[in-house]
Design a protein around this nucleic acid. Structure first.
Lengths: 332, 332
DNA sequence: TTGTAGGCGTTATCAT
DNA sequence: ATGATAACGCCTACAA
């Protein structure tokens, strides 16, 4: 009663050739006479035949699909990376299956496993420092994996990053020109996005500034606008007069929270945020930021992954993209 | 030389049972003696066996994967919907393959086809009024499809929306209290997100306000922050003293562009935007908005899709979620 | 409760 | 240039 799924056999029969031939024209194999090619193409059109990618995947052991593990697709930073990834993936005829990990170690392992079960040809892993468990998981699969905006401290897995340590240090030094008390607003410390690098850079800068490191100036958040807003009061009380923030949404919240409390920015309080996503221009004053090529981080990592999937030689496994500091309204 | 891919046969041999039995325990079939189940589970663990989802998909004709066609994942409005979709999908054990369409008719058709070729169990289509071509494509597939934040004027395809017409009318009426010239900032007119509904609602409100509709007060954009910024000058020149905007990023740009030009908001110019995404709170003043349950739009549509995929009866095919108007800083 | 065997829709290897 | 015919890894009646 329903339209049966039509297969390569149907096309073959209808066109009076073997399925092998149909397969050849579908796959652009040159060894087909032009006339039969036409004939087959016609039938394909007429029958509205659409090759079954699953069967194809089973037979060829390639799915033309890559998995993307992402902490939160609704976060503009990750969304930008995702966009870069998808564009390049599309360019190379890959599709993307996205799985939110919420930055949770266990969920990460979970989604990585289901992604691998789905036989993705490759994996892009976003956002977190690698936990030992996940690294173990990665090490026993042949599936190519690339980290984007995430560092592997063992330096085993190919990755695309900026130098978070250096960038954070530079940003902190900028704030140090006018501030004696600089706060560090990070993600959840146990598992922050490049948290260690950032902390190290921050501390190195403090040392150079002859400022003492104080736990009381380090604040943890869960990467959300509201976290930033809520933090404003605590930060104000801490006596800090500047902050380096690890996530743009948090920074926007903090800035607005501070402004709403009558704090003058940048006169009384300076902020530099970390990701230079579009939202840094949404506020007044606008947010100064570590400048990083978000889209490119995604795009380059996907490009790297395609090379690995195609078994091309990759000279550089740990790609560091250039960064900078954009001075906008939240710094003097 | 490498770790061979290990299959259900390996497990069967190693456990001294048939592959059917292994399949049973993997799929949680109850007809397995507890002791053999244990035995099999042990071997699975020991061999680190991971069922091949592709083979499974071919044999069972189910991929536990749903396709999501999205205009731009980097847009916070769509990203919110996507998050809702993914959460519910995960809850029901589905994965999501995302494809950006850029709101382009041809790309849409393209990605829909590759998604269908991949045998997704269902499809969520975001963002646009349906073109005839895409509707034709949809009508000749058995794959369940749900529209989220997109209306089908033929009312054939299940969808989850708010009443854009009514919401736009209400918002326009609010602006009409203080303004004689209300601009409508839409997406690309040919293919705007629910563009027709919004235009109709806008015009209905004008009529009720005894204001005349003028082409000069309708502005098209491409849904980006920068479009909004650029538009500020033109809108100002047009003499409008209020605007209803179809996209939050555009609204943010417009607001900032206006503020930067010395326009006082809301005193001299009022704005109501359309999507109530987080970024409406990023600006100062904050943006008043049509209020809509973004996450729920995604979540509900995915829930509806699961029902369809499981062949459950669905009573209501066109779900309208409630909306409201949030008055924030950009209105008097 | 467990095993056997026939698909699922392609690709890919050999022949012809 | 074209056609048989095995895989590919699993599910699922059907038997036992």
């Amino acid at each position: 009663m329903d339209n049966e799924t039509i297969t390569i056999y149907d096309v073959a029969r209808e066109a009076g050739v073997s399925m092998a031939t149909v397969s050849r024209v579908v796959n652009g194999n040159q060894n087909v006479k032009e006339t039969t090619r036409r004939k087959v193409l016609d039938v394909i059109e007429r029958l509205d035949y659409r090759p079954n990618a699953v069967a194809r995947g089973l037979a060829s052991k390639k799915t033309t699909t890559v998995g993307v593990v992402i902490p939160d697709i609704a976060n503009s930073y990750f969304a930008s990376l995702a966009r870069g990834i998808d564009d390049i993936a599309t360019m190379y005829k890959y599709n993307i299956v996205i799985a939110n990990s919420d930055g949770d170690d266990n969920k990460e392992i979970n989604v990585v496993n289901t992604l691998l079960a789905k036989q993705v040809d490759g994996l892009v892993f976003l956002g977190h420092d690698l936990s030992d468990k996940i690294r173990a998981e990665f090490s026993r699969t042949r599936t190519p994996i690339v980290l984007a905006g995430a560092v592997d401290h063992e330096n085993q897995i190919p990755s695309v990053n900026i130098d978070y340590n250096k960038a954070t240090k530079e940003a902190t030094l900028v704030l140090g020109k006018h501030s004696q008390k600089i706060a560090l607003i990070s993600g959840p410390m146990v598992n922050a996005i490049n948290g260690k690098e950032r902390l190290v850079g921050y501390q190195a800068a403090l040392k150079e500034l002859n400022q003492t490191f104080s736990e009381g100036l380090v604040f943890e958040t869960n990467y959300s606008f509201n976290d930033g807003v809520k933090l404003a009061e605590r930060v104000k009380i801490s006596g800090a007069t500047a902050a380096i923030v690890s996530d743009d949404e948090v920074a926007v919240g903090l800035l607005n929270g501070l402004v709403d409390r009558g704090v003058k920015i940048p006169e009384e309080f300076e902020i530099i945020t970390a990701n230079d996503s579009v939202i840094t221009e949404f506020t007044r004053p606008t947010l100064s930021s570590i400048e990083q090529p978000l889209y490119d981080l995604g795009a380059v990592s996907m490009r790297l992954l395609t090379k690995m999937m195609h078994k091309e030689e990759v000279s550089e496994k740990s790609i560091i993209l250039p960064h900078g500091i954009v001075m906008r309204g939240s710094t003097k």
